[in-house]
């Protein structure tokens, strides 16, 4: 079908040749830039969304709480998704212990797909930074939060997520949280 397009050669060549060259140069440019971009997708970390509404069981008890009850006060909350089997959680644990000292901040843990016994061992060994621990045995609550792995951490104020950390906390992120909570 391209046959006829090229048959009246001279006239069409004059239009087609530059057009083809420009298109290919454009494609080259896009692919060249694309090469240096990461191909791994990470959801946006800057949010200003309302916290999700859900019901959740309190860790190691039969008590159920709603999201409203958990984050009702006019202070900063830090929701930390963790599990005893998650190795990076051990790395960020000291930062959580540090943040615990901050009086304007309350740390809520969401225990992700864990066994009660293992989780308790973890906390006994490394201390407990959480004022409240919620239990997410099937991982569905984490999805309400838009999380997809452990650990993930959310900074909450006035019923809104103001910061989201994917993966373990580090020194810089720790300082950012300290600065945000004033």
């Amino acid at each position: 079908m391209g046959c006829s397009a090229f048959s009246k050669k001279n006239m069409k060549t004059k239009i087609l040749l530059p057009f083809t060259i420009v298109s290919f140069l454009f494609i080259f440019f896009i692919l060249y830039v694309g090469l240096n971009r990461s191909n791994i997708y990470i959801p946006e970390t800057v949010t200003n969304e309302k916290i999700p509404t859900f019901k959740v069981k309190v860790f190691n008890s039969e008590k159920e709480l709603t999201s409203k009850e958990i984050f009702e006060n006019d202070i900063y909350y830090l929701l930390n998704i963790w599990a005893s089997w998650c190795i990076p959680c051990r790395d960020e644990h000291p930062y959580l212990m540090q943040l615990k000292k901050n009086k304007k901040l309350e740390i809520v843990g969401l225990n992700y797909k864990d066994k009660v016994k293992n989780a308790n061992n973890f906390l006994n060994e490394l201390n407990n930074p959480y004022t409240l621990i919620l239990s997410d045995t099937d991982g569905t609550i984490a999805i309400e939060w838009g999380a997809y792995g452990v650990p993930e951490t959310f900074l909450i104020h006035n019923g809104k997520i103001i910061k989201k950390i994917i993966g373990p906390m580090n020194n810089n992120l720790f300082k950012e949280i300290e600065r945000a909570v004033k």
């Binding site: 692919l31 694309g34 090469l35 240096n36 971009r37 191909n39 791994i40 997708y41």
Partner: peptide, 13 residues
């Protein structure tokens, strides 16, 4: 490695 796929070779720009 410009695309994300199940079958990955070692990526190297």
């Amino acid at each position: 490695g410009i695309l994300n796929s199940v079958h990955t070779f070692a990526n190297d720009p």
